[in-house]
Design a protein around this nucleic acid. Structure first.
Length: 221
DNA sequence: CAGAAGATCATCT
DNA sequence: GATGATCTTCTGT
């Protein structure tokens, strides 16, 4: 048994400090790309974050735009925690709370690339092609076992951890570009590219037949 | 490949 | 009572 009582051998990732999240939301959204998200919900999974979207301040698309409500309250509370809510009656959305306390901000995790826990993801995403396991906010929540019970959960464990350790090993210049045209054409989207290709095929762009790659899996193998 | 529709419910007006 | 930070299935070409 290791001397550390916080991180067992099952969650080897060292969490990012709260100060990482207590910054402008757009910066956090950008800096989250490539980080490792580890989730333990009756089984552990890890994945690299490859697509994010920032919601903050009075942006009308943000839940916090019209003040705190029972649902959006976490956006006004402690940075470095999860904000999880249900959409369309069936999909859990995973967000990370940003900005100092009192100012509403959160980053929606829109896409991840599996690192470990493939068997569990395959079970939870039964029927879907592997390339569609985690390319979309509803899909990744399903695959990783994210539920509303994770609302306000710390991103420093024990159930959730976001870490810089094991971050995506970049082998090429990283292009981070805003994605437009989904809802409001705002610079809120961040996607992660390697060698000119996104790391997961975005759910809405499946039909464009973009190549799927998962360099993280190769690198970690 | 592209478009339409249905699923299903917490939240807010 | 309408809506939504979505996804899947089904239709037609």
């Amino acid at each position: 048994m290791a001397s550390s009582s916080v991180n067992s051998s099952r969650n080897p990732w060292k969490p990012l400090p709260e100060s990482f999240y207590a910054r402008p939301t757009l910066e956090v959204a950008r800096d989250l790309l490539g980080k490792v998200l580890w989730v333990d919900n009756a089984g552990a999974c890890a994945a690299h974050i490859v697509e994010t979207e920032a919601y903050m301040g009075d942006d009308p698309a943000s839940h916090g735009a019209r003040g705190s409500t029972p649902r959006s309250a976490p956006m006004f509370e402690d940075p470095g925690r999860a904000y999880v809510y249900l959409i369309y009656g069936m999909y859990e959305m995973l967000n990370f709370v940003t900005e100092p306390r009192g100012f509403p901000g959160a980053v929606l995790i829109r896409g991840v690339s599996p690192v470990s826990g493939h068997a569990l993801m395959a079970k939870r995403r039964a029927g879907a092609r592997e390339q569609d396991w985690t390319n979309g906010p509803g899909r990744l929540a399903r695959a990783l076992g994210i539920e509303r019970s994770h609302n306000r959960a710390s991103l420093q464990g024990p159930s959730l951890i976001v870490s810089d350790e094991g971050a995506l090993p970049f082998r090429a210049p990283v292009m981070v570009s805003p994605r437009v045209g989904i809802r409001l054409a705002r610079d809120r989207y961040w996607r992660f590219f390697i060698d000119g290709h996104p790391c997961v095929s975005p759910a809405r762009e499946n039909r464009l037949a973009r190549p799927y790659s998962s360099p993280s899996v190769e690198a970690m193998a």
